[in-house]
Design a protein around this nucleic acid. Structure first.
Lengths: 109, 109
DNA sequence: GCAATACTGAAGTGTAGACTTCACTATTTA
DNA sequence: TAAATAGTGAAGTCTACACTTCAGTATTGC
């Protein structure tokens, strides 16, 4: 995946906003329409729409319009980008700690 | 963990910034001083300091001052908060998909 | 001790982006 | 077909925050 670098940034930026995170958390429970999402959030439909655009762009959410209702559901791809990045960082620093351990063991001999 | 909710927000906000993400990525490779971090970033020492405060507060980075040098290293805790949240969301929506599968199987009978 | 180094803190600037209003289109229902 | 519903788009406001400058302090080396 060539775009990984920008993708992580997008996903993190998307999830950094509490309103968007709340949208994601509610969609994890099941699909919802735009108005259903807006209700408990205490923001306008327009605001929700803007958030949905952001969430769609980084593939945390997928939406589909049927008639006049847009149905929103969670998407796995965005989360995958995020966990890949975290795992990558972890393995880099764990590898380093391993090498450090090896060196210390060497010296014990 | 009582503070989990605010914690995730903090961690995501911290990592959403490209400069801070770059700091984290470099520290995964090994500990660095504040000036060593600042060099390649093309920002002032002050800016790096401010970023370090943010990263320390959400436990993505730990720092320790020895003499006049502050040494910065990565910390696991912040990442743990992040992956816990992601895993929680995933299990919520996967549980739902399972139930959905059950219902569909029921109907097939 | 004096200069250089390494960082720290306060205060100001500029911009991204979260939100609003308002005017609008498309679909459904009575 | 008229009214209600569901969402869309453009444009403006307001605030958070990433960054700067500048004026320090503490440590180290000569």
């Amino acid at each position: 995946m060539v775009r990984a670098k920008e993708d992580v940034g997008r996903v993190l930026h998307a999830l950094a906003d509490p309103t968007r995170r709340s949208i994601v958390e509610r969609l994890a429970r099941g699909p919802l329409s735009v108005s259903a999402l807006a209700g408990p959030l205490g923001v306008t439909l327009t605001a929700v729409n803007q958030h949905l655009h952001v969430l769609e762009k980084c593939r945390l959410v997928r939406t589909e319009k049927t008639g006049r209702v847009r149905s929103c559901r969670i998407e796995a791809a965005g989360f995958g980008v995020l966990t890949s990045w975290v795992d990558a960082q972890r393995s880099i620093w764990e590898a380093r700690l391993d090498r450090l351990g090896d060196i210390l063991n060497e010296e014990e001999k």
